[in-house]
Measured scan of single mutants.
Amino acid sequence: KVTYHVPNEEFARKLYKKAVDANLNVEIRVENGQFIIHIE
């Protein structure tokens, strides 16, 4: 399980798409202006 803290929405979207394309379980949320992405 990996967690990324991404300040940039564009990068967060790319990361999310890559994980989904790889059939990984992804959860994304915004906290204090940062995008928190959990990948399992």
Rank of each mutant, 00 (worst) to 15 (best):
E10N: 04
V6F: 12
V20K: 12
L24V: 04
A12M: 09
F11S: 10
I28K: 00
Y16V: 06
Y16N: 01
H5S: 09
V30L: 08
H5D: 03
F35Q: 00
E40H: 12
E31H: 09
N32D: 08
N25L: 12
N25Q: 12
N23V: 14
V26A: 08
E31Q: 08
E10A: 10
N32F: 10
K14D: 07
Y16R: 04
L24P: 01
V6H: 04
G33F: 07
N8T: 08
Q34F: 14
H38M: 14
N32A: 07
V20T: 08
I28L: 11
K1G: 14
F11W: 14
P7A: 14
K18Y: 13
A12H: 02
H38D: 11
K14T: 08
H38S: 15
H38F: 13
K18Q: 12
A12E: 02
E31N: 05
K17M: 09
L15I: 09
G33K: 03
F11D: 13
Y16L: 07
R13N: 06
K1S: 13
A19P: 02
A22K: 06
I36L: 05
T3A: 05
E31I: 12
E31P: 02
V20W: 06
G33Q: 03
V20F: 08
N23A: 07
I37F: 03
K14W: 15
V20N: 03
N8L: 11
L24Y: 07
K18V: 08
T3F: 09
V26W: 04
N25A: 10
E9F: 11
E9P: 04
V2A: 06
Y4H: 04
I39S: 01
F35T: 02
V30F: 14
H5I: 15
E9Y: 12
D21I: 09
E10Y: 09
V26T: 01
V20P: 01
H5V: 14
N23I: 15
A22E: 05
I39D: 00
I39L: 04
R29C: 13
E40A: 09
L24G: 01
I39K: 01
A22L: 13
Q34C: 15
N25Y: 13
F11A: 14
I37W: 02
F11M: 14
V26C: 03
Y16K: 02
D21C: 12
V6S: 10
Y16D: 00
V2M: 09
V6K: 04
A22N: 07
A22S: 07
L15E: 02
Y16W: 09
G33D: 03
K1L: 09
G33V: 08
V30D: 02
V26F: 06
R29E: 06
R29A: 04
R13Y: 11
H38E: 15
V26I: 06
E27H: 10
K17W: 10
H5K: 12
F11G: 04
I37C: 03
I39G: 01
V26L: 02
N8A: 05
L24T: 01
E9C: 15
H5N: 08
N23Q: 09
V30H: 08
F35M: 03
E9M: 09
Q34K: 09
T3G: 03
F11E: 15
E31R: 08
L15D: 01
V2K: 10
V2E: 05
E27N: 06
V30Q: 08
G33C: 10
V30S: 05
K17V: 06
V6L: 10
K14A: 12
L15Y: 04
D21Y: 09
V2W: 14
L24N: 01
Y16I: 08
A19R: 04
V6W: 07
A19E: 02
K17F: 09
R29N: 05
T3M: 08
I28P: 00
Y16A: 06
A12Q: 02
Y4M: 07
G33R: 03
K1V: 11
V6I: 11
I28H: 00
H5P: 04
F35A: 01
E9Q: 06
F35V: 05
A22T: 03
R13H: 05
I28Y: 04
E10L: 06
V26G: 01
D21W: 11
Y4S: 02
R13Q: 07
K1C: 15
E40V: 12
N32S: 05
E9D: 04
Q34W: 15
I28G: 00
E40R: 13
N25H: 14
K18P: 01
L15S: 01
H5Y: 14
N8M: 10
P7W: 15
V20A: 06
Y4L: 12
A19W: 11
R29M: 08
A19T: 03
G33N: 05
T3E: 06
V6P: 06
G33A: 03
R13V: 04
K1H: 12
I36P: 00
V20H: 06
H38K: 10
N23K: 10
V6R: 02
K14R: 12
I28V: 06
F35P: 00
F35L: 07
A19H: 04
Q34N: 09
E27Y: 13
A19C: 14
V26M: 03
A19Y: 13
G33T: 03
N32G: 09
N23P: 02
P7K: 15
I28W: 07
A12I: 08
D21N: 07
V26E: 00
K1E: 06
I36R: 03
L15W: 05
H38C: 11
K1N: 09
E40P: 04
N23D: 04
E31Y: 09
K14M: 13
A12L: 12
N8Y: 09
V30K: 08
F35D: 00
I39Q: 00
Q34A: 10
V6G: 12
P7I: 14
I36Y: 11
A12F: 10
N8W: 13
I36S: 05
I39A: 01
P7N: 14
E31V: 12
T3V: 11
N23T: 06
F11I: 14
T3Y: 09
E31K: 06
V30T: 05
N32C: 14
N25P: 05
P7R: 14
N23R: 09
D21E: 13
V6A: 11
E31T: 07
K1P: 09
D21M: 12
P7S: 14
R13M: 13
G33W: 14
I37Q: 00
R29L: 10
Q34L: 13
E10I: 07
K14E: 11
L24Q: 02
V2C: 15
L24A: 02
G33I: 07
K1D: 07
F11R: 07
N32K: 06
F35W: 15
I39F: 06
A22P: 01
Y4D: 02
T3I: 12
V30R: 07
K17P: 01
V20Y: 07
F11V: 13
F11H: 08
D21L: 13
V20M: 11
K18E: 09
A22G: 06
V2G: 07
R13F: 10
Y16M: 06
K1I: 11
N8F: 13
D21G: 07
N8D: 10
N25D: 07
F35H: 01
E10W: 11
I39T: 01
E9K: 06
H38Q: 13
I39V: 07
E40D: 10
H38V: 15
F35S: 00
L15T: 01
V2Y: 12
I37D: 00
K18F: 14
A19K: 02
F35Y: 11
E9T: 04
I37V: 11
I28Q: 01
P7L: 14
A12S: 01
I36H: 03
E10T: 06
V6N: 04
E9G: 05
A22D: 04
K17Y: 07
K14H: 07
I39W: 04
N23L: 13
K18S: 09
E31G: 05
I28A: 01
Y16T: 01
E31A: 08
P7V: 14
L24E: 01
Y4Q: 03
Q34G: 08
Q34Y: 13
K1W: 15
E31W: 11
V30N: 05
R13A: 05
N25K: 14
E40I: 13
N32P: 03
E10S: 08
F11K: 06
V2D: 04
A22Q: 07
I37L: 08
R29I: 13
K17E: 07
E40K: 10
N23H: 12
N23G: 15
E27F: 13
A22H: 07
K1F: 13
E27S: 14
Y16H: 02
N8R: 02
Y16C: 11
E10V: 05
V20G: 02
V30W: 13
N8C: 15
I37M: 03
I36M: 05
L24F: 08
L15A: 03
